[in-house]
Amino acid sequence: MRGPAANHRYRLPPPLFDARCRACWLCAGVLVLVVASFVSLDLPLAALFSSDALASMGRFLAEFSSPDLSPAFVGQVTRATWETLAMSLLGTLLATLAGGILALPASRLHDTDAAPARAPARLMLNALRAVPELVWAALLLIAVGLGPFAGTLALAVHTTGVLGRLFAEAIENAPPGPAAALRVQGAGSVRVFLYATLPQVLPQLMSYTLYRWENNIRAAAVLGVVGAGGLGQMLAFHMGLFQMHKTATVLMAMVLLVALVDGASFGSRRLLTR
């Protein structure tokens, strides 16, 4: 077989590295950073896989083989599980409301929109999400004391920064055609947003919210370690006392809760994106 079609069929693949390829240089830079990280951190990998370390880990894992399933303790774990779930739900709800409010001034609704509050609003969102949930919880524990209230507020504050930025990006990237058609007809900014922009981005906003709820379930379980209530507080307490049979029960509840919420959230997002 000869001719142009044959030449196109048997064309050699491109070279693995091309000096004109920006992606190649980016991958090379990332590879250099990874190698430099291993060298600079001086990770004792040999000690991790030594016989003493493996034996210690084996003894530690063996202590989890008999979780405490007594009715009294299972009842305590159930109440802590509900507390963790409630913290994540309420924190996500508050963050959705606050993030939606801050996303409006943080986004440019159309090309001619001056959006004077865009820069300060985005700076505030960046500051809120730059501080991890554990740090927010430690700060709020000083203000409101131990318990789930501090954990809920910590989740709400951090997630507000995350969802607010995601909401603003979704609003700015919405197809401009329907909004422009309404503006030509003389509709105001509020009507344009409610009848043109919001219906287009609402499924995406709901998907972002559900995904962050999944993350907040895990974060709520960790926040309890600093005294913010829920399963994390029980985990820190029983691990501190080396009660591994009770610790195993708490970990089982964490895994089950995360799996159930992940499944429910994934199914909901699939329905929204159809």
Rank of each mutant, 00 (worst) to 15 (best):
G75H: 15
L241S: 03
L128W: 11
H238C: 04
L48V: 15
L31Y: 01
T160Y: 11
G29C: 11
G227N: 04
A130H: 06
P105W: 00
A95I: 15
A103K: 14
L48S: 11
V190L: 11
L43K: 07
L102C: 09
V162N: 02
V192S: 01
A103F: 14
W136P: 09
M87V: 14
L97Y: 13
L109M: 07
A248T: 07
G230Y: 12
M87R: 04
W213C: 09
A72S: 10
A168P: 05
D68V: 00
W136M: 13
S56T: 14
A181N: 14
A95V: 11
V74T: 12
T92I: 06
G161L: 04
A47D: 08
R118A: 01
P4E: 09
H110T: 04
P13C: 07
R108I: 08
A154N: 00
L123C: 03
L48K: 12
G75S: 15
A253N: 01
I171A: 02
P105C: 00
Y211P: 14
L163Y: 05
T78G: 10
A154I: 01
L256Y: 09
W213N: 06
H110C: 08
F17V: 06
R20I: 06
G177R: 12
V34E: 00
V77M: 06
H238W: 08
M206K: 10
P105M: 00
A86H: 08
G29Y: 07
L256S: 02
A259N: 05
F149Y: 08
A220W: 14
G267I: 05
A264I: 15
P116F: 11
R118S: 00
A150D: 03
T209K: 02
I142E: 02
A264L: 15
P148C: 02
L153S: 08
T81A: 08
L235M: 11
G230R: 15
M252D: 02
S88V: 15
R108K: 08
Q243Y: 07
R20Y: 09
M1N: 03
L251K: 02
T160P: 14
R108M: 05
T159A: 12
A115M: 02
F73T: 10
P4H: 05
L271M: 12
A117Q: 07
F17G: 02
F17P: 06
P120Y: 06
V222E: 05
L41K: 05
A138M: 12
V74Q: 01
L198V: 13
L125P: 00
P14Q: 03
S50C: 04
L205D: 05
P4D: 09
T159N: 13
S65W: 11
L16D: 13
P71A: 11
G224E: 01
